[in-house]
Amino acid sequence: MHAIARRRHHRAAPLLLVLALLALITGIAAVAAPSTAQASTEASADDVVAGERLFAANCASCHGLDAQGQDGVAPSLVGIGAAAVDFQVGTGRMPMQASGPQAPVKPVQFSQDQIEQLAAWVASLGAGPAIPTADEVDPALGDPANGMLVFRTNCAMCHGSIGGGGALTQGKFAPSLLETTPTHIYEAMLTGPQSMPVFNDANITPEMKRDVIAYLDFQSNGSPGGLSLGAIGPVSEGLWAWLVLLGLIIASTIWVGARSS
């Protein structure tokens, strides 16, 4: 006992312990982390198992271990499909930080691989929309003019004319789409997260969805007229007219008036 205790109190012991721990962590990471070369969109059985574990650790406290949901707390996830999981977890909305009118966007909590594992497990519970392919969401393949027509008939009443966002009732809101990725836009249309209605493929065809993405992507070119003032319409324009335009001019009247002859 005495000898062991003495060795444990050796001066180098803490350093050795840290080194040993580092080696252990690196080893586990090297074995556990799937190599990127192996990643594929097809969900394997392993992914489903890993997804179930992640779900139990991070989501089950609200949605239940069987993902059936709880009344008044969280909805059932059976049949929502991989697209919904990719959207909700991939934009950081889930896991939800605090209950409120609406789950806001926040830093994403999982790696893309983990999100796909979660999606694979949820998709295995019941058939639902899948994550769209790269071609389906490619803005270059869409028609922005048709996208404009689809967008303003179906989306603009909540998200604003070019997707700058807008308010809904009781503290809920339609978020700005100007920073959202094409895949997430597509998934949102397909699954109708939170207050948003579902726009299924019969309602808005996959081609029209891609046109909408092309229209929103076109907005990243910026406004031809200069700075867009938030692209929220005449209210911000009026505020700027008073504060900047009239403000500068009144400041100059005071300057001219101060130079009294």
Partner: peptide, 9 residues
Amino acid sequence: VSAGTQPDW
């Protein structure tokens, strides 16, 4: 009708 539909100030 889009969100943020307002007249000039």
